[in-house]
Computed example of a mutant assay.
Amino acid sequence: MDELEFRRQLYTNPRNRSEALLQEARRNNKNKKLYDDMQQLENKLEQALNVEVPDGLAERLMLRQSFDDSRQQYRRKSRWQIAIAASIAFALGLSTSLFHWQQQAADMGQLALQHVYEEMPYTSGVDEQPSLQTINAKLARYGASFEQLPGKVVYVNHCAYAGSPALHMVMKGKMGSNINVFVVPKSTELKTVQSFSDKTLHGMVEPLANASLVVVGEMKEPIEKTLHTLTAELNQAI
């Protein structure tokens, strides 16, 4: 397991206890520190979720009591309602957060931009010089292959894209900057777009026979030419 794969698996599941991950964590102090930091962060998140209900919450959440019960009955009822109200508030907050995250993740373009930014510290300056055989071996599971290298490829590996396996390839563009290429299996959960951008990057999506081809590059890079070259050189299984 290389360092990039170690970080990807750790970020995806900080509680991962696989032997391969633990061996990579013990391999050097940098990986060990990252592993320990992630465990501490998980512990803090778990503690943050285990919050006791504040004592004064009943007066702020409940309407006046409809019945004139005894003080003891009132207190018992109050405690029960406090717990219910807190549970509902927490569930609504969590549901809202998940809804916004799912809305963002459902857009293939926004997901690609997020992925590129997260991987930039590890793909910047990398040149693994993968061979055509190596690239095609990783493309095989997506029903595609290249007859020849589509350009200067500096990195290729599998990645997690919206929770599903995908291919991530990095090429050198015409202007010398990195162009990120993703081959994403078809999924009804992802909203397909033709193009997308932010202030720094822009991208395009091309549907394939069994997947989608996503290309992301800097604004100065003519990614249309890269996309055309890739689709022209790519053999797709029908």
Results as ranks from 00 to 15, higher is better:
L4N: 06
L4D: 03
L4M: 12
R8K: 07
L10E: 03
Y11A: 02
N13I: 02
P14F: 13
R15L: 15
L21P: 00
L21V: 00
L21S: 00
Q23D: 02
E24L: 14
R26L: 03
R27Y: 11
K30A: 02
K32C: 07
Y35F: 14
D36F: 07
D37F: 10
M38Y: 10
Q40S: 12
K44E: 06
E46D: 13
Q47Y: 10
V51M: 15
E52A: 15
V53C: 12
V53K: 05
P54R: 09
P54F: 05
D55F: 04
L57M: 13
R60M: 06
M62W: 04
Q65Y: 00
Q65V: 06
S66L: 15
F67A: 11
D68Y: 06
D69E: 09
D69M: 14
R71A: 03
R75L: 13
K77E: 08
R79L: 05
W80S: 10
Q81D: 03
A83G: 05
A83I: 13
A86Q: 08
S87G: 05
I88N: 08
I88V: 15
I88L: 15
A89S: 12
F90Q: 03
F90R: 04
A91V: 14
L92E: 09
L94S: 12
S97N: 13
L98N: 10
F99A: 14
H100D: 00
H100A: 04
W101D: 06
A105N: 12
A106Q: 12
D107M: 09
D107H: 09
D107S: 14
M108G: 10
M108F: 05
Q110P: 08
L111S: 12
A112M: 00
Q114I: 06
H115I: 04
H115E: 00
E118N: 05
Y122T: 01
T123C: 01
S124N: 02
G125V: 11
V126A: 12
D127W: 07
E128M: 09
L132I: 15
Q133C: 02
A137F: 12
K138Q: 14
K138D: 00
G143M: 03
F146K: 01
F146T: 01
E147S: 08
P150Q: 00
G151R: 07
N157W: 03
A160F: 01
Y161S: 01
Y161L: 11
A162C: 04
S164M: 09
P165A: 11
P165M: 09
L167R: 06
H168Y: 10
M171G: 05
K172P: 09
K174H: 06
S177E: 05
N178F: 01
I179Y: 03
V181G: 10
V181M: 04
V183A: 08
P185M: 13
P185H: 13
E189W: 03
E189F: 12
L190R: 08
L190G: 09
T192W: 07
T192M: 06
T192F: 07
V193D: 05
K199G: 05
T200L: 15
T200N: 12
L201R: 14
H202V: 02
L208T: 14
A209L: 14
N210E: 06
S212T: 08
L213I: 07
L213E: 01
V214S: 10
G217A: 09
G217K: 11
P222E: 05
K225A: 12
T226I: 08
L227H: 07
L230S: 01
A232E: 00
N235H: 09
N235D: 04
A237P: 01
I238T: 02
